[in-house]
Design a protein around this nucleic acid. Structure first.
Length: 555
RNA sequence: UGGCAGGUGGUGUAAAGGUAGCACAGGAGAUUUUGGUUCUCUUAGUCAGGGUUCGAAUCCUUGCCCGCCAACCA
């Protein structure tokens, strides 16, 4: 008997559109989306939302997705970005049908432009940028025609050809669509189609000195690829009329544009321009700094592809502006890592514990489970000896009432080892605690406990002599305020100066074999990922996220 | 103050004229050799006013609030 109650997940508005199109057999039931990054920066978590939407939609409806680079502005674009983008999309777990570039279509786009000129729908404008702006009007006043608007078709054709040949100076002429200078939609007031740029393109080299604008490249590229659903963010809503206009006048494949609200996350920024500034001005170590909201930063921080995909699933897709709580992202990564990350012990802020009734020189092994969520992963051995380390904050000389940890006269369990009782506190001349002296209960060893004792607290620990030093990089939010982009003044004034702190911890010997990219849970501390800076003999751990801590919450 | 697009608990997101639900966050408890996990329970919402209707988050209307649009950026 199978319970047929499959939770019916409601469709988001784009899925509804696709299902409606499918039910009407539009495009013969074909679904083809595209993810269209401009290769002028690294991908961030906001792009992940778009990637999951585009690829996820196609997957769900038996279609495919093209990866298309919107590379129409050679002055800001670079192959470094192309490579990182491809890597990030694949890392997230998606495969594209075809890898395309808007620049693949430059010849076709040029032919499209000629066609519009021939139809009297485009013209070459010799005005300066200032003159054009002045004649464009404002949102409340219509624009006025400039002196070149009614040039003859033949003259436009000749001028456009000469633009392409490089006969005119950069910025001296543009090709504009002839639409409606009085339109309330500013994007329809004779938008630019081509501008002159004597710039080297990362793919076409020096073949071109004129480059199409976004509006004359994106929709046409969609049409050339026969994209059925072209999904973009809300700020492109005013462009949709233009998108449709070009497709109609060119009489090409009728791709349709749909807009959704981009992702915003608390305590970070989500614009490539701002992220680039953080990198260039050295506020972070690079695009993949673990504090960055970039895919590469999150990856280095220890976020898993599954956790990011789940996050994108949970935040939903709608058309209202949003600011998602960072705690949801953290929840998603804990959820995934809890299931898969092997447990280890490390003491971040060591306090020496001497077991006075444990013979000097003796050592024994304790077995500790690798992951209680996955018993099949077995146990590992941890050495136990007379001198140990525990966390400073796991001991208090004068504890409050519900303190379950170590205190004079109080007993605790050392995880996977013995129960110990604190007998004595040793201080130095200044009165600071140097070590804590305890006795262990001989018949209380984990797995063979015959002591009958019940203790409230269990502590993580390492054997002082056997432990190895590891560098731990702990991260806090990059900004001090929830929404740095909407603050007064420069967003960088709101950077959190304490977003990174580096300490040396004492870790159990199993860390000797840790390799970059591996994820662990440090018991009672959090999830950590082995950083690529790790070298032989020196392990570096990035804190991905802390464990939930109900004790800290109430204190 | 022109056009466009929006406004559902603290944060997101559902409910397509018929019981305002789910997740995160918050709170209480149980279990626990991680103050983790897990499991219960729980606080809290339809921007405001008017209208249509037996019935409105949903339709109409007025107002308020937020966002976007006047780059040779995408």
């Amino acid at each position: 008997m199978v319970d047929e109650k499959k939770e019916e997940k409601t469709l988001n508005f784009i899925e509804e559109i696709v299902e409606k199109d499918l039910s009407e057999n539009k495009h013969g039931g074909r679904v083809l989306t595209r993810f269209p990054p401009e290769p002028n920066g690294y991908l961030h978590i906001g792009h992940a939302k778009s990637i999951c939407l585009n690829f996820g939609l196609a997957q769900k409806y038996g279609g495919g997705t093209n990866l298309r680079f919107d590379d129409t502005n050679p002055t800001t674009e670079d192959v470094e970005y192309v490579d990182s983008i491809k890597n990030d999309v694949q890392w997230l777990g998606f495969n594209w049908v075809e890898e395309r570039y808007a620049s693949d279509y430059f010849d076709q786009l040029y032919a499209f432009a000629v066609k519009l000129i021939e139809k009297g729908l485009a013209y070459v404008d010799d005005s300066t940028a200032e003159e054009i702006a002045a004649l464009k009007g404002t949102p409340t006043e219509p624009g006025k025609p400039g002196p070149y608007r009614d040039r003859a078709v033949a003259e436009n054709l000749e001028l456009f050809e000469r633009m392409r040949k490089g006969e005119f100076a950069e910025g001296s002429r543009v090709l504009r669509a002839k639409i409606d200078l009085a339109s309330p939609n500013m994007h329809l007031r004779d938008p630019f189609m081509y501008r002159i740029k004597f710039a080297h393109h990362h793919r076409t080299g020096d073949k071109w000195c004129i480059y199409p604008m976004y509006d004359f490249a994106h929709g046409q590229s969609d049409a050339i690829e026969k994209i059925t659903h072209s999904i973009c963010t809300l700020e492109f809503i005013p462009h949709r009329a233009l998108y449709d206009w070009f497709i109609e006048k060119l009489d090409i494949f009728p791709s349709k544009q749909y807009e959704f609200a981009r992702l915003n996350l608390t305590y970070t920024v989500m614009s490539k321009r701002k992220l680039l500034q953080l990198v260039q001005e050295g506020h972070v170590s690079g695009w993949d700094d673990p504090r960055m909201p970039t895919i590469s930063g999150l990856r280095r921080r220890g976020y898993t592809p599954a956790s990011i995909r789940n996050f994108c699933e949970r935040i939903g897709v709608a058309r209202r502006d949003n600011l998602i709580d960072m705690s949801l992202l953290e929840f998603c990564v804990r959820e995934d890592l809890n299931a898969i990350a092997p447990r280890r012990m490390a003491v971040l802020d060591p306090l020496k514990v001497v077991i006075t009734n444990y013979p000097e020189g003796r050592e024994e092994m304790c077995l500790s489970e690798n992951n209680p969520e996955k018993p099949e992963t077995g146990d590992r051995e941890m050495p136990f000896s007379r001198e140990l380390y525990i966390e400073q904050d796991d001991f208090m000389e004068n504890p409050p009432k519900k303190y379950f940890r170590l205190a004079p006269g109080q007993m605790v369990r050392l995880k996977s080892a013995y129960i110990i009782r604190c007998d004595e506190v040793v201080k130095n001349a200044e009165g600071t605690i140097e070590e804590v002296r305890c006795t262990y209960i001989e018949n209380s060893k984990s797995g063979q406990d015959e002591s009958g004792l019940k203790v409230k607290g269990t502590l993580h620990w390492v054997s002082a002599a056997h432990s190895i030093p590891v560098e731990i990089r702990q991260y806090d939010r990059l900004f001090r305020v929830e929404d740095p982009a909407s603050q007064e003044g420069d967003f960088k004034e709101y950077l959190n100066p304490d977003s990174l702190s580096i300490i040396t911890a004492r870790a159990e010997p199993a860390f000797k074999t840790a390799t970059p990219g591996e994820a662990f849970q440090l018991l009672r501390k959090g999830y950590f990922s082995v950083d690529s800076d790790s070298v032989d003999g020196k392990v570096v751990l990035n804190q991905t996220v802390g464990l939930r801590d109900n004790w800290a919450k109430g204190n």
